[in-house]
Write a protein that binds this DNA or RNA. Structure first.
Lengths: 331, 331
DNA sequence: CTCCTTTGGGAGATCGATTTCCGACATGCT
DNA sequence: AGCATGTCGGAAATCGATCTCCCAAAGGAG
């Protein structure tokens, strides 16, 4: 019981393959309504579904786009992939998600796999601002590629990101308005553009004297390590800006265990506005990315002629989401 | 600058397409080492990569398997997909992940999309034990399908799941050993096999008189709703078994806000052992699925001849992970 | 030295759908 | 009526890689 082919449908409907194809693939060409009806009926009766490989081979297009994220262990990237999926599906396409395991080498491999005729275009959230460039440039020479959320130098293509500097300013301003002036930064992933930009923006605002804790990667475990260091310096600090929600979560959990009141003693902010934040006690103030708008713009760029994808960075404005972790009244 | 084809490689190496194919696709056939070297060299120099659609069309196999999960918003399913991805990649394949948005209709659609020549086989975590069956049965008639973590009646194929009854027993025994005897259940997703099995096992153990809170779906929001109901009955309860981590997380967060001590007043257990649990205060006791072993078995079944996939359920043994949320000494 | 076997390269068929091109027929205009 | 124009179905080419066959050359046996 092998799958029905177009030929089978055509025979069942008493027409040629060409006519059947015109009806089912929706070619802009008139077909006698009666024949069309017979084809539709036969296709439905046989449970016909076009062979994807054959169609892709002939048309040179797969109707699938891919996205390579640094890791799915970070819920922010799951949320991001989901936002892209929404828009891709709305446009009638399919999305393939790949995980780069936070490693530029694996990232390059995933990009190659997807590009080998599996996707029409690709979104990449580059692992590293410096090391991801070459692989992306190579990919961009073959198919449309748009960077998302982060950029990479030498990528040769456009990036749709958040205005990280503005986001850091929103957070610092908010903290200062609530009377906190001894603000520390817990940052991670300096190799990524977002990590670097957040650190740079903070240093610019606070000067070199400000306390910063740098961690290798964006994980909750790193957040806990940061927590220990912050606890040691608790008397010189009244607020901590974290470069990612996963860091904030680990940090708050450590502070809590060491009986450092949040926000009473130290206010804490996250970054990315992932869902878990609501659940913590206290819920954590964060930065919301306009993911849907960003995804829409990125998809538009992906489908645009390549001259519109010159290497540059387009920035979207962040939104501050205030929660109890920075509440003045709760001290 | 269009992508190089096999023909281009063959010409550059001065051989026929057939020979080039034999070298690059690794057909079990001897080729003169000198020619092989020339082909390899040419392929490398031109940056040749086989066209996936063409190969898939000819060989009838894509090297890709798919997995349809109820939702990626639940980190457990992300973890599950990741475990499967590990094994698929180790076997030289690629995994496509699809999200069914907790809706059997969308699930059926996703299955169809994947099956239309995109994948060699499919893992499905069925949304509903009753409603998911037909679509899966249809799919299983076309390609190998293996259910994972949950089963569905009338699916016509094998399911690799957890022994949910044993898991509930582990939890209840553990709680009773720590002196808790007024145990309530917070269960969700009665439409899913796992939800139903957990409820059934609990009822079997505790009798009909036991307190149970039933919720429509596995979300943290549902967990908070449950929290409010548990708070109302706090004096008749000293422990709560939750049917999922996301429920436990929402529940603990609500209890905490209502100043009900955990585990002092009420002990709480989760289910699935997702990563967030470690972060909570207190960290939550849970059930760990042997996901890697399950994924390995499922992949084996997927690649086995179809007669080994008769409709049945294979159960793996759960493991209890004790954390502070059920600690007796912490009261 | 001839015949048979083995080895390995190449021509061409093939997978299933789309698309170009051609021809048959109908329609409209003069 | 005669010719241009337009509509629409079908035959066949096409996408790129694989795989079946056939054939040439080399090696071995008698």
């Amino acid at each position: 019981m092998t799958a029905p082919r177009l030929l089978d449908v055509a025979e069942a409907a008493g027409v040629s393959r060409a006519t059947a194809s015109r009806v089912l693939a929706g070619t802009p060409r008139n077909v006698d309504p009666e024949l069309a009806r017979r084809v539709e009926e036969a296709a439905h009766r046989l449970g016909y579904q076009a062979n994807h490989s054959a169609r892709a081979l002939r048309t040179g297009t797969t109707g699938t786009v891919g996205v390579v994220v640094p890791t799915l262990a970070n819920p922010y990237f799951v949320q991001l992939a989901d936002a892209i999926a929404q828009h891709v599906r709305a446009a009638g396409g399919t999305l393939m998600v790949s995980d780069a395991a936070n490693d530029p080498a694996i990232e390059a491999e995933q990009i190659d796999t997807l590009l080998a005729g599996r996707v029409d275009g690709l979104f990449v959230v580059p692992v590293s601002a410096t090391e991801s460039g070459p692989a992306i440039r190579k990919a961009a020479a073959r198919r449309p590629v748009v960077l998302f959320d982060r950029w990479a130098t030498g990528s040769g293509t456009v990036a749709v990101t958040l205005d990280n500097a503005a986001a850091v300013r929103l957070l610092v301003d908010h903290l200062e308005r609530t009377g906190r002036h001894r603000i520390a930064l817990v940052a991670a992933g300096q190799a990524s553009s977002s990590g670097a930009e957040r650190l740079a923006a903070f240093t610019e605002l606070q000067g070199d004297g400000a306390t910063t804790v740098l961690l290798p990667n964006f994980t909750t475990d790193a957040g806990r390590t940061a927590g220990r260091r912050i606890v040691e310096q608790r008397d010189r600090i009244d607020a901590v800006v974290c470069g990612a929600d996963v860091l904030a979560v680990g940090l708050v959990s450590t502070l809590h265990r060491c009986s450092v009141a949040v926000p009473g003693k130290i206010a804490v902010t996250g970054f990315d506005d992932t869902e878990i934040l609501e659940l913590f006690d206290p819920p954590i103030t964060s930065i919301r990315h306009p993911l849907s708008a960003m995804a829409e713009r990125a998809l538009t760029l992906l489908q645009a002629p390549s001259r519109e994808r010159t290497e540059r960075v387009e920035r979207f404005q962040p939104q501050l989401v205030v929660r109890a972790s920075t509440d003045v009244t709760a001290s």
